[in-house]
Write a protein that binds this DNA or RNA. Sequence first.
DNA 1: CTGTTAGCGCCTTCAA
DNA 2: TTGAAGGCGCTAACAG
Lengths: 338, 338
Amino acid sequence: MATIEDVAKLSGLSRTTVSRVINNHPYVAEEKRIIVLEAMKNLGYVPNSAARSLRNQKTGMLAVLVPRITNPFFSQLIEAIEIAASEHGYQLIVCQTRYLKEKELDYLNLLKTKQIDGVVLTSTENDWETISPFLKYGPIVLCNEPNERANVPMVTLDHFYGGYLATKHLIEQGHKVIAYCCGEYKSSISKHRELGFLKALSESNLYFDEQHAFRDALSVADGREIFHRIKEMAYQPTAIFTGGDEVAVGILAEAKSRGWKIPEQLSVVGFDNQIITELVEPTITTVHQPVNQMGQKVLELLMEKIKSKTKLYRDVHCLPLELIVRESTLKKANQTLY
Amino acid sequence: MATIEDVAKLSGLSRTTVSRVINNHPYVAEEKRIIVLEAMKNLGYVPNSAARSLRNQKTGMLAVLVPRITNPFFSQLIEAIEIAASEHGYQLIVCQTRYLKEKELDYLNLLKTKQIDGVVLTSTENDWETISPFLKYGPIVLCNEPNERANVPMVTLDHFYGGYLATKHLIEQGHKVIAYCCGEYKSSISKHRELGFLKALSESNLYFDEQHAFRDALSVADGREIFHRIKEMAYQPTAIFTGGDEVAVGILAEAKSRGWKIPEQLSVVGFDNQIITELVEPTITTVHQPVNQMGQKVLELLMEKIKSKTKLYRDVHCLPLELIVRESTLKKANQTLY
DNA sequence: CTGTTAGCGCCTTCAA
DNA sequence: TTGAAGGCGCTAACAG
């Protein structure tokens, strides 16, 4: 492996000059620059990044922590962040916490060990008090799941509004008894959605019956189970707000296989606007999240913090959500066209 | 930031001894080991990994190159590799080539710049002749897409058999005119599947009409379009082998929306066994790929090569595929149960 | 069992 | 405009 020394020797100049060429410093005679470039090419020289990291105290790497990469929402978010990062010359390390506190801390340790220059957290397993000490080793920004106590930049979505919007839509369709699902994590996301959900109900003088709450619904399988629980109820809801498209799909699939008519017997709203919502029948009404913008925005914030090295402060960027109305909530729109 | 020097001073010992403790070397008096551990804790010391990389010539990082992380097949593969890697104490850098030759080379350059210790390639954009020079900077192994000319370890699936199996199944269902789709990349994967497909046909003395070939089908949208092309044909196939579940889903969704009965008017076989195949109606017959085993196996191979530092040689591990029969090909199984 | 010393490859003062 | 020299933090001889 050629080193800077080799290049210096071959070009008959000093390491310093070679270094200057590598880093595009001014004050290098054009003619010598050419000689150096030539020598580098002949040797197939590439700067050793470990040495650079050691010297410069930065690595050109970022970590993105997600619960699971196979969740389409997160993989899309990673994709967006990756593209933005690579435009800034940064590599992305993908870290799956698998919803484990311990894993999250392991990965945050990359900041301590100087393997990364910054972190994007898309969800938090530990309390903020556990996470915040890591801030002295490098910037951490939040994306997706906000945190009340975190004094760092964050990009989030208006989940209150998302919950409100979807529920309002169901009410407008004439529903009076609406069930509610959310994911297991007691994240503020779920809380906000629920507040929006309740707000919409109360605006129409509707009451929510706690028996219609399903608070640990994450997967397709959970959706299937929820359907069965609803099926057995004496006092059945006519519509359901789910915290995610997977759950909605599960409910739908199971309901259909039991001969229920959707949306006539049960209207279903998803969340995420995943591709699957357009592929099932009926297509699913859902809330679209601007994932790409989120990724782009959060990277921008992180870059700024890495460059300026100023102290982080709370700086919340809230992006809008959008309701996408499809067949799973529109009683009249489900007829065929021919 | 505490350094090894600080720990040495605080514990009244030398850097060497501290280093020995860090690296679990033998020949350190138990009592001093404790002193050092204590000092490390008090200082919140963590070894600087850039310094270690520089010194040890290894980084503890691996790169996995995939076309797109949002493709569920690849994200599942990444997940499997990540889990295996983390068990070996390695971090994963996720690299999206977005089907670009140039991107692929950019990422392979991480090997040159010593940012990673090894590479997993899940698909190749460039010719092997372009890739192989990077082998002198570190091990590269293939996973998923094999390469005829690559003399490196690889994990692959028996796509010939996959194509054969699925087609044979269609023939057994009584089909005589079967269409064929594959992805755009002229990878050996598609070739092998097609050979298997043709083999099954010829075994039953069936002939393949080139007008029934769709050789650039990747997405749901492609599937939709393929349906329309089939619909317009004078000589229509009664079944179709697709190279991926997305395409199958697209065909299905479009066919249903046009009032076609599936599988009665068109039987469809997917590939990948993605979760969606169980969520649409009818559920989709598909070929299951043992993604987790692949990931685990390929990481094992890579670890071995990183450790042994021996020259790489061709070493093909071919894992079996399995046909999962569901409703989209079974004419009688689609009745309701009540 | 422990310490001294010499780099790994690079960049950045400082001096010329 | 160029070069000499020191050191980023760590580990592996080599001595003791």
